Simulated scan of single mutants.
Amino acid sequence: MAKHNWRRRLVARARRVEKTITDFLELPPEAALDLPRLTLVGDSRLLLENHRGIVTYQPELVKLKTSTGVLAIKGIGLLLLEIKPDAIALEGTIHSLEFSPWGRHEVT
């Protein structure tokens, strides 16, 4: 248990240092810290940059890994339009977006 607390504190401290450096250099955090960037157009199109892969792909549910957790997109007729190493585009009728940080209960 203590081992995990030590690791969690170290990761939190590293994130604070990264944020301080990014703020100082006036860089966008999603580019410098490899944070996910979502672009949602209405309820029909989504672009996720800085993804880490696909966890689940179904017409009603798509789960994508990011550097900070899992993003679940729920809807109807979800279709992956484009998959690139750094971005994923999908379309369909999007009903909800749910984010589950690493270490927390995963979105179902």
Rank of each mutant, 00 (worst) to 15 (best):
K63L: 10
Q58E: 12
V107P: 07
L71I: 09
A87Q: 07
T56W: 07
T108N: 15
H4D: 12
R104P: 00
L78S: 02
L64P: 05
E91D: 08
R13A: 13
P85Q: 03
R45L: 06
E49G: 06
T93Y: 13
T20M: 11
I21P: 03
V17K: 00
R13C: 09
L90Q: 11
K65I: 02
E49A: 11
I21E: 04
P28D: 08
L33C: 10
G42L: 07
D86H: 05
W6K: 13
L64A: 05
K74Y: 15
P59E: 09
A32L: 05
A72C: 15
K74E: 15
A89S: 08
E82S: 04
I88L: 14
P85A: 01
A72W: 01
V62K: 05
V70S: 01
A89V: 12
R13I: 04
W6L: 14
R13Y: 12
H95M: 14
L61D: 08
I54W: 12
D34L: 08
K74M: 14
N50M: 06
Y57G: 08
K19H: 06
R15Q: 10
R9G: 09
L78F: 03
I83F: 00
H51S: 10
R15I: 04
W6G: 12
R9N: 10
P59Y: 05
Y57N: 14
L47I: 12
D23S: 13
T66K: 05
F99D: 01
E60D: 14
H4C: 07
T22Q: 13
K19W: 00
A32R: 05
G77C: 02
L80Y: 00
A32S: 15
V107I: 12
A32H: 02
T93R: 15
L38A: 02
